[in-house]
Computed example of a mutant assay.
Amino acid sequence: MPAGSNAKRERQYEHIKKSAQERGESAGRAKEIAARTVNKERARAGESKTSSTTSTRDPKSASQRGGTRSHSGAQGPTKDQLYAEARKRDIEGRSSMTKKQLQRALGR
Score class of each variant (00 low, 15 high):
Pro2Asn: 13
Ala74Val: 15
Gly76Asn: 06
Leu102Asn: 05
Gln21Thr: 13
Gln21Ile: 13
Lys8Asp: 15
Ala62Arg: 11
Thr50His: 07
Val38Asp: 04
Asn39Ala: 13
Ser72Met: 07
Gln81Ile: 10
Glu41Ile: 08
Gln101Pro: 00
Asp90Val: 12
Ala7Glu: 12
Met97Val: 13
Glu41Ser: 13
Ser26Lys: 10
Ile91Tyr: 03
Tyr13Met: 11
Arg36Phe: 10
Ser52Gly: 12
Ser48His: 10
Thr56Gln: 05
Ser55Arg: 10
Arg42Phe: 00
Gly67Glu: 03
Lys100Gly: 14
Glu41Trp: 10
Glu92Arg: 14
Lys8Tyr: 15
Ala7Phe: 00
Lys100Met: 10
Gly24Tyr: 03
Met1Thr: 10
Ala62Ser: 14
Pro59Thr: 14
Tyr83Met: 15
Ala7Gly: 04
Arg104Val: 02
Ala86Thr: 05
Thr50Pro: 00
Thr98Met: 02
Tyr13Asn: 07
Gln101Ser: 06
Ala35Tyr: 09
Arg87Phe: 05
Arg87Asp: 13
Ala3Leu: 14
Arg94Lys: 14
Ala35Phe: 05
Lys8Gly: 13
Glu85Met: 08
Ala7Val: 15
Arg44Ala: 07
Glu10Pro: 00
Pro77Leu: 02
Asp90Met: 10
Ser19Val: 11
Gln81Val: 08
Lys18Val: 12
Lys31Tyr: 04
Thr54Ala: 04
Tyr13Gly: 03
Gly67Gln: 03
Leu106Trp: 08
Ser5Trp: 07
Ala34Thr: 02
Ile91Ala: 06
Gly46Ala: 07
Arg69Glu: 11
Asn6Lys: 06
Pro77Ala: 12
His71Asp: 12
Arg29Ala: 14
Ser5Leu: 15
Lys40Met: 09
Gly93Arg: 04
Gln81Asn: 08
Ala27His: 05
His71Gln: 12
Ala84His: 14
Ser55Gly: 10
Arg9Pro: 01
Ala30Tyr: 01
Met1Cys: 08
Glu22Asn: 15
Glu47Asp: 10
Ala35Gln: 09
Tyr13Pro: 04
Glu41Val: 05
Thr50Trp: 06
Met97Arg: 06
Glu14Tyr: 11
Glu85His: 01
Gln12Arg: 15
Arg108Phe: 02
Tyr83Val: 11
Lys18Tyr: 15
Lys100His: 06
His71Trp: 04
Gly24His: 13
Glu92His: 10
Asp80Arg: 11
Arg108Gly: 10
Gly46Gln: 07
Ala84Trp: 06
Glu32Ser: 08
Gly4Tyr: 02
Lys8Val: 14
Arg23Ser: 15
Arg29Trp: 07
Lys40Asp: 09
Lys60Asn: 11
Arg108Trp: 06
Thr53Leu: 12
Ile33Ala: 00
Gly107Ala: 02
